[in-house]
């Protein structure tokens, strides 16, 4: 494990009942790195990134996030969750709270930030994702693209050290995908450490430092985009690429 490492997976396995979703995953992500995780559905890619903030529990192996090992220890889990932002496929905004309240909730309650400061911080991020004029609306009054951008702002308000994206554009209408990807590209350019599960290969080419290809619970290969697209090692990767490109 090197010094710059922010995520460290060592031989991580996980089962859902009898079915093994993750089979001995080894992965190391450095600070500032952008990783795109792709692979066919059911390959374990979502499960893998959900292990990073313990939304899923791994049963074997070791996961260290920003120097904290994830075990049953609740304190460790809380520490990790404070530092890891997550964006979901279904946005998962809180429908009973305004966009602004969605964003200030965690800073106020988890970071114990004064309300005025939290509001200022939230407005800054909401401006950045370009929905500052919608902040007093409720999530269901916004379009899918706007909701997802609000969800990104909400995660950023915790000022996380890394961001996880679990298929952030899969639930969006095609014309709204770009506005969300643009926000993510901006974030990448600012140096945020990002793990993105996505099928958007254009985004992968433009942003990723490495593309991790998973199949049947294993990492098949992990390479820089140019190498990955032009010179894949395994037959499985070639087949996958031929299907999606």
């Amino acid at each position: 494990m090197n010094q710059d490492s922010i995520i460290y997976f060592e031989n991580v396995s996980k089962w859902f009942g009898d079915f093994q979703v993750l089979k001995g995953i080894n992965l190391e992500v450095n600070k500032g790195e952008k990783i795109v995780v792709c692979g066919p559905s059911g390959s374990g890619k979502s499960t893998m990134i959900r292990c990073i903030n313990r939304l899923e529990e791994h049963q074997e192996g070791k996961i260290i996030v920003d120097g904290t090992e994830l075990t049953g220890n609740v304190k460790n889990i809380d520490t990790v969750r404070r530092e890891v932002g997550m964006v979901f496929q279904q946005f998962n905004l809180f429908p009973h709270l305004s966009i602004l309240d969605n964003c200030t909730l965690a800073p106020i309650w988890v970071r114990k930030m004064p309300k005025a400061d939290a509001t200022e911080l939230a407005m800054q991020y909401l401006k950045r994702v370009q929905i500052e004029d919608q902040v007093h609306k409720f999530p269901n009054q916004l379009s899918g693209g706007q909701q997802q951008r609000a969800a990104i702002a909400r995660a950023l308000c915790m000022q996380p050290r890394l961001m996880l994206f679990d298929e952030p554009t899969s639930a969006l209408d095609p014309e709204m995908i770009k506005e969300v990807l643009d926000v993510m590209i901006g974030l990448a350019q600012d140096g945020m450490t990002m793990l993105v599960v996505t099928h958007e290969m254009g985004f992968a080419k433009e942003v990723a430092d490495r593309i991790v290809f998973m199949d049947e619970g294993q990492i098949v290969e992990a390479k820089a985009p140019k190498e990955f697209f032009e010179n894949p090692d395994s037959e499985r990767t070639k087949l996958f690429l031929s299907q999606i490109l």
């Binding site: 313990r54 969750r81 905004l93 809180f94 909730l105 309650w109």
Partner: peptide, 20 residues
């Protein structure tokens, strides 16, 4: 997803239930 979003933000069990 509501539970997961609350947990991912670092809310405790009681905060999650009380606020979300």
């Amino acid at each position: 997803g509501q539970y997961e979003a609350a947990q991912a933000l670092g809310l405790s069990y009681w905060q999650m239930n009380y606020k979300i």
